[in-house]
Simulated scan of single mutants.
Amino acid sequence: MRVYGVTGWKNSGKTTLMERLVEEITGRGFSVSTVKHAHHATEIDHEGRDSFRHRQAGAREVLVASPVRWALMHELRGANEPPLAELLTKLSPVDLVLIEGYKRESHPKVEAHRAETGRPLLAPDNPTVRAVASDTVPAGLDVPVFDLNDITAIADFILKEVGL
């Protein structure tokens, strides 16, 4: 499976970049799935829903199905978070999986960077960052730098990198 990441510090524009890349790449006829890493407990279910009640009762997995989508929730119940490689095996085959977060994993990435965050670039110390998408022009980088809003160029770069 072809995978490519978008990484960066909080509020650097990762999610917006992911959203725009998915739209651009699917618009070119490729199938795309995404993986989003959260560092905190993320709740996608809501109290009062039947599925929430099933989980609260102790179910390990709850699959919710409707005529327009289905979702599988898996409760870790104290087990360790599975590694990214294991999670990727749960996805159906697609042309490209875009991964948001997982900055320390070994897959190639584009770093989203906005000067207003005041955070340093990850690229100089992270060899998996193959390009930077920024609202400024950082100097002294050994990787390509794209305007954060030039989605066409960033998508072209990623698709070339993965051989699509």
Rank of each mutant, 00 (worst) to 15 (best):
T26C: 09
G27S: 09
G27W: 06
G29M: 13
G29H: 11
V35Q: 13
H37C: 02
H37R: 05
A38C: 13
H40E: 07
A41D: 12
A41G: 12
T42C: 14
T42P: 14
T42A: 15
E43P: 11
H46E: 03
D50F: 02
D50P: 14
S51A: 04
R53W: 03
H54R: 14
H54S: 09
Q56F: 11
A59Y: 01
A59C: 05
R60D: 03
E61H: 03
L63T: 12
L63V: 13
A65K: 14
A65P: 12
S66T: 07
V68Q: 14
W70C: 11
A71N: 08
A71M: 11
H74F: 00
E75T: 01
E75R: 04
L76E: 07
L76C: 00
G78H: 05
A79C: 10
N80Q: 06
E81H: 03
E81K: 02
P83E: 10
L84A: 00
L84E: 01
A85G: 11
L87Y: 11
K90Q: 13
K90W: 12
L91Y: 11
S92P: 11
P93I: 01
V94K: 07
D95F: 07
E100G: 02
E100R: 06
G101R: 04
Y102E: 01
Y102F: 10
R104C: 08
E105D: 15
E105K: 12
S106Q: 00
S106R: 06
P108E: 10
V110N: 07
E111A: 02
E111K: 02
E111I: 01
E111H: 02
H113F: 15
H113C: 12
E116D: 09
T117G: 10
T117L: 11
G118Y: 06
G118E: 04
R119C: 05
R119E: 12
